[in-house]
Amino acid sequence: MVNLVRQLGQRSLNIVQEAGAMLIFLLESLGLAFMPPFRPRRVLQEIYKIGVKSTLIVMLTGAFTGMVMALQGYYTLRQYGSEGALGAAVALSLIREMGPVLTGIMVSARAGSAVTAEIGIMRITEQLDALDTMAVNPMQYVVMPKLLAGIIAVPLLTAIFDVVGILGGYLVGVILLGVSSGSYFASMKQSVVALDINGGIVKSLVFGLTIILVACYKGFYTEHGAEGVSKATNQTVVLSAVLVLAWDYVLTSFFM
């Protein structure tokens, strides 16, 4: 029993310690964004790797999410004779919740894992040490551009997810199930307000930062060779997905 309590206590301490280390890592890397040399080209390269290369998977996920929501929503709303509100239901769910959360999870699975693997391999092959010995700060050269790219790319990907999802919902609701095109968009226009869009943007900003922070941190402190990289990559996907969901609850309760 005493051992169990001790282990629980130790585990809690480790979690708090790692959270603190991650926060310091974040502040240090973001602080370097304001110090020369500025690296706009590196940031653009990372936006391409994290954002542009995730576009297709985000569009596919968005399309199918919108289609499923339209299908589910149509049969539920029809029971109350409110099929005309389908556009509002699809758009609000996507903009407030599904867009930021699912985009975050897709980015974590596709780009987050890649970021950890890339930095982890740089660590175990001494590329980060090589940067350091050349008097180039690895946090500034490797981590900071990725963090900025995450903050920029994830909100844009979320917007793409929302638009494609709404079009997916239109395809199923209007073209396949016969809801009027006018009421689909009119109900959407009537129901979606600036707060919904702002909330979605704030969520996607926080998710983008969280995912890439976890990915960079886990990669930067990778140990024990190839097995360590594999473990770090796995931890990135699991931890960032859990954090996205946890942040979603916190931010939703804040915006409600």
């Binding site: 092959t125 001494e126 590329q127 040490d129 090589a130 010995t133 008097a135």
Partner: peptide, 19 residues
């Protein structure tokens, strides 16, 4: 320390070339 590092070069065991 950065200024000091500019005075030396290091050949790492595996080369540490940027992939």
């Amino acid at each position: 320390l950065r200024e000091f590092k500019r005075r030396f070069g290091v050949l790492f065991q595996g080369g540490a070339l940027f992939d």
